[in-house]
Amino acid sequence: MTTAPSSSLPAARTYAWAGVALALLGAAFFATKGIVIKLALHEGIDTVTTLTWRMIVAVPIFVTVGIIGYRKKLSQRAAGAPPVLDRTTLLQVFGVGLIGYYLSSFLDFAALEYISAQFDRLILLTYPFFVVLFGAIFFKRRITVPMVAALVVSYVGIAIIFWHDLGVEGDGVLIGASLVFAASIFYATYQILAKPLIDKLGPQLFTSLAMSAAGPAVIVHFLVTHPFGDLAVTGNGFLLMLAIGTISTVLPAYCISAAIGLIGPERTAIIGNVSPIVTVTLAIAVLGEAFTIYHAIGTVLVLGGVYLFARKGKPKIADQEVEP
């Protein structure tokens, strides 16, 4: 039996710590999305305009990285091997991209006009439950008792926050919660459909193509519903538009991607569960959102249910870095 040279152990520990740090950074950056959208709303910039700016800033970066990755795959392809990308695969990726980065993103962004950033984040966090449900319905996958228990725990937590906020803020909470639940359903659908495509193309090329489909769809949506001049934002608004595309989208994507390479997808996913905690903290500190005993109990239950779910049979979902 051979053992690793002792000199390689410090390097391995360094890579592991670097992976953990990158996973934490990625989770923290992703957690800023709802905060930036809320700040944009305070500046008078609606969610469709913010989503459009997100695409304007982020898509060219993802596409550039995707072109580099595609050329690398072409150079590594053996003679006589099947093409890296065929028409059928391209159309599938475009369709999946529209589900994840247009439909799900639009619904999630729109929900923030009605509910708090922290509540939105907690509901979206439960999308793996829908992955399991769809797996059971369409692929006859088994649902275990611990998975059901984890689901019940999380949704009791959501119900506590929902009933409190509904009594304080009115029917808008029902609209917002419905929108983000719909976003979660579409994101779960996206995760199921994206998995084989990511396995085939790799995350970088897949993301570039998916964003390439969603970006024009978002821009068309904007042009149908807004005058072109609404894109002209200045001052703090412009900084927020840059932030939604870079800090909340591009930077976390590459942090998470690097973390997966260093410590693997499972550990990265577990560390990523700190993201809602960061969102809650920022929502209270930056936005001044209320955090009552009901929010505290609900948050603990949601996070506890998600943790139990991850331990007791989390479904195989796409190792995909970009959230809706």
Rank of each mutant, 00 (worst) to 15 (best):
T3Q: 10
P5F: 02
S8M: 06
S8Y: 03
W17D: 00
A18M: 14
A18V: 08
V20D: 05
A21N: 00
L22S: 08
G26Y: 00
A27G: 15
F30T: 15
A31D: 06
A31Y: 01
V36P: 04
V36A: 14
I37K: 06
I37E: 04
A40F: 10
E43Q: 15
G44H: 06
G44K: 05
V48Y: 01
V48Q: 12
T49F: 02
T50Y: 01
L51V: 13
P60L: 10
I61Y: 02
V63F: 14
T64A: 15
G69Q: 07
G69S: 12
R71H: 08
A78F: 08
L85K: 02
L90M: 11
V93E: 08
V93L: 08
I99N: 01
Y101P: 05
L103T: 13
S104C: 07
F109L: 02
A110K: 11
A111E: 03
Q118F: 07
D120G: 12
L125K: 07
T126R: 08
Y127D: 01
F129A: 09
F130E: 05
F134I: 13
I137N: 01
I137A: 09
F138S: 08
K140W: 03
R142M: 10
P146I: 12
V153R: 08
V156G: 01
I161M: 15
I161L: 10
W163R: 10
G170T: 04
G172Y: 00
V173G: 00
L179S: 03
V180Y: 04
A183R: 10
A188Q: 09
Y190G: 01
I198C: 04
I198F: 11
K200S: 13
K200I: 04
L201M: 07
L209Q: 11
A210W: 11
A217N: 05
V218T: 14
L223Q: 07
H226E: 14
L231A: 11
A232I: 14
A232P: 01
V233P: 09
T234W: 12
G235A: 04
M241C: 13
L242F: 12
I244Q: 06
I247W: 12
V250I: 14
L251C: 08
P252A: 08
C255R: 00
S257K: 14
G261L: 10
L262W: 01
G264M: 10
E266D: 14
R267Y: 11
A269P: 00
I271D: 00
V274T: 11
V280Y: 01
E289N: 04
A290K: 11
F291R: 02
H295G: 05
I297Q: 03
V300P: 07
G304E: 04
V306R: 07
F309W: 11
A310N: 12
R311S: 00
K314R: 13
A318E: 02
D319I: 03
